[in-house]
């Protein structure tokens, strides 16, 4: 009896935390998404009673005139940040830093890691300052100005997406960089040595030996970062707040935040915002399932085909 209980005792702190801070809020957000709870009826509307539940918020989302723009922005933001930085650049950095002197590679990775350990507000504000008008903005003053290529005074207004990709990418790449470089370093040296003996070039070694052997970290980073990017909005909020034009850089998660929690005249619509987040949760689950199917995640967790040593 004692032995049977022990695992549950050890699991209980996690169970309590996950229940309190994930499942209960998830259920509440799900219920809220069917209500019209907002600033005008908070404390009046009995949102927990099924009689007050309906699908109006979902109808509003899918008939929104700017729905396609927000969806398009989200797809572009997730796909390009993922391809160019979170997986693409992370892989390039990992490959380069594992093919040069170990200590130099390590030092470079530490430097690249600095934005991740900088508080996100400080980090983003530094980018805002960089992109600001001359004489404050470093990019305008020292690079674009002397080169005579202009770029306008408010770079965040003229090229908002460039900055959104850069700001997210520099942080995002560090996550994959660490995982990929440790995976590459874990590949037994015999394989790479054997390929070199067989006359393989560096590119051939990478393409035919190293990349296939870090397939699982690649799958994990792609899946994890897709879901992470889908729900991330803090850098965009701090950089452009979805602007400068109407919904120009607004992504799905930022819309949910704006609808639920911000408004100049305080008409925050908690129910409507919750509906936007529920759709996002569903998109996230569908994406996760697709990834796991496509990348055959089942194989990763299969029993080894050889006897255990």
């Amino acid at each position: 009896m004692r032995g049977q209980l022990a695992p549950y005792v050890f699991l209980s702190p996690t169970l309590v935390l996950v229940t309190l801070f994930f499942f209960i809020p998830l259920i509440m957000v799900f219920i809220l998404s069917f209500t019209s709870l907002d600033m005008t009826n908070f404390g009046i509307l009995e949102w927990w009673r099924p009689v007050n539940w309906n699908l109006d918020n979902y109808v509003k989302i899918f008939t929104n005139r700017f729905f396609s723009r927000i969806l398009g922005n989200t797809i572009m933001y997730v796909a390009l940040t993922l391809a160019l930085f979170n997986v693409g650049m992370a892989l390039v950095i990992a490959l380069i830093t594992t093919h040069i002197k170990r200590r130099t590679g390590f030092a470079f990775r530490v430097l690249w890691f600095l934005p991740r350990i900088t508080p996100v507000v400080v980090y983003t504000m530094m980018w805002r300052a960089l992109a600001g008008p001359a004489p404050m903005g470093v990019l305008n003053k020292y690079f674009l100005g002397p080169l005579g290529i202009g770029g306008g005074e408010y770079l965040l207004n003229t090229h908002p997406w460039v900055f959104i990709f850069l700001v997210n990418g520099f942080i995002g790449a560090s996550f994959g960089m660490i995982l990929f470089s440790s995976a590459i370093e874990a590949i037994p040296k015999d394989y790479t040595t054997a390929s070199k003996v067989d006359g393989a070039t560096t590119w051939q070694t990478i393409r035919y030996v190293e990349l296939p052997m870090i397939k699982w970290p690649l799958l994990f980073v792609t899946t994890y970062q897709t879901l992470s990017l889908l729900t991330s909005f803090e850098q965009i909020m701090l950089l452009t707040d979805g602007g400068p034009g109407l919904y120009q850089t607004e992504v799905w998660a930022l819309t949910a935040y704006h609808r639920a929690l911000t408004s100049y005249f305080g008409n925050t619509q908690w129910g409507y915002g919750a509906a936007w987040s529920v759709v996002l949760v569903i998109i996230g689950i569908v994406m996760a399932v697709i990834y796991l199917r496509v990348f055959k995640f089942g194989e990763l967790v299969e029993e080894p085909k050889i006897d255990q040593l």
Partner: peptide, 8 residues
């Protein structure tokens, strides 16, 4: 429209 108050 869309400019930051303090920086622009």
């Amino acid at each position: 429209l869309g400019l930051g108050w303090g920086d622009a």
